[in-house]
Amino acid sequence: MVREQYVRTTGDEGVPDTVPEYLYKIGIYGWRKRCLYLFILILLAILVINLALTIWIVRVMWFNMEGMGLLQVHPDGVRLEGESDFLFSLYAHEIDSREDSALLLDSTENVSLNARNENGNVTGRLSVGPKKVQGDAQQLVVSSNSGRMLFQADGKEVVVGNNKLRITGPEGAIFQHSVQTPLIRGEMSKDLRLDAPTRSLSMDAPAGVHIKALSGRLSVTSNRDVQLHSTEGLLVLDAEMVRMHNLQLGTAGTGGAQDLYEVCVCPNSGKLFLSKANVKTTCSDSQQC
């Protein structure tokens, strides 16, 4: 409440006349005052709730001077301790594990790694799913710890850079097209088998094909003909004993006193046959060719 007084001067005597006092009530009263107090009380309650939530978030998220709980921020990167779940995509320049533990990426669906260029286009992709592992890239290179290339594959060829390629499957390996290799060797305790069930088997080399069995025997089986062909040079069978089964036996002639035979070869067809041995060869006199 404010009291105001107005004074005015009248009359010839110069005596001021006093104006009656007027009282004015200045303030908020009634329901407006109650609404104001209620509004201030609500603001105070919201302030207390926000302060309590802030303290709770700080306690739950473990905020500290180095980071947030298990997540520590360093000048050279971010270090995360323990297990963490990422609900959306993760973008990082490099991901390393601690020296005393492995790096584990686990997902209920699949784990996808994408490489992008400066325009944002995906240039390489690796997806590990519950049923298959799929990778898309221009070139796949597998190297050892020393930097030696072990495996390389692109759109033109596949290169195995190790000294030995071992295939341990019980059915072996199936090649749809040609195979070029300097050496094919079986394990010491197992046989080496080259098999073409429905077609022919061909081995070509400009300087020759060398087949060697260090222990055991060498067997060549065919449903039809077996051809050993040399364009230049000789075909040499070098062994302590060469056996040719089911050859046609020659008949006893009049020249030899003993039942001795010689193996003859037809000059036109290369057919092998036996002929009665004599002082001179009888191959030309035989009618087997």
Score class of each variant (00 low, 15 high):
Arg3Cys: 03
Val19Glu: 14
Tyr22Ala: 12
Tyr22Asp: 02
Ile40Ser: 07
Leu41Asn: 06
Ile42Asn: 02
Leu47Cys: 12
Ala52Tyr: 07
Ile55Asn: 08
Ile57Tyr: 07
Val60Ile: 07
Leu71His: 04
Leu71Ile: 15
Leu71Asn: 01
Gln72Thr: 15
Val73Pro: 01
Gly77Leu: 01
Glu81Pro: 00
Leu87Phe: 07
Phe88Trp: 05
His93Cys: 03
Glu94Trp: 03
Ile95Cys: 05
Asp96Cys: 02
Glu99Cys: 02
Ser112Gly: 02
Leu113Asn: 03
Asn114Ala: 11
Arg125His: 05
Ser127Leu: 14
Val128Leu: 11
Val128Pro: 00
Pro130Ile: 08
Lys131Glu: 11
Lys131Asn: 14
Gln139Glu: 14
Arg148Ile: 04
Arg148Pro: 00
Phe151Glu: 03
Lys156Gly: 01
Val158Arg: 04
Val160Glu: 02
Gly161Phe: 09
Lys164Phe: 05
Lys164Asn: 06
Ile167Gln: 09
Gly172Phe: 08
Ala173Pro: 02
Ala173Leu: 15
Thr181Leu: 14
Pro182Phe: 04
Ser189Val: 05
Pro197Gln: 06
Arg199Val: 12
Ser200Gly: 11
Ser200Lys: 11
Ser202Tyr: 03
Ala205Asn: 11
Pro206Glu: 14
Lys212Trp: 06
Ser219Asn: 08
Val220Trp: 04
Thr221Asn: 06
Arg224Lys: 14
Val226Cys: 03
Gln227Lys: 15
His229Pro: 02
Gly233His: 03
Asp238Gln: 14
Asp238Glu: 13
Val242Ala: 10
Arg243Ala: 08
Leu247Ser: 11
Leu249Ser: 08
Gly250Asn: 02
Ala252Asp: 12
Ala252His: 09
Thr254Ala: 14
Gly256Tyr: 00
Gln258Lys: 07
Asp259Arg: 10
Ser269Lys: 13
Ser269Tyr: 11
Lys271Thr: 10
Ala277Ile: 02
Thr281Lys: 06
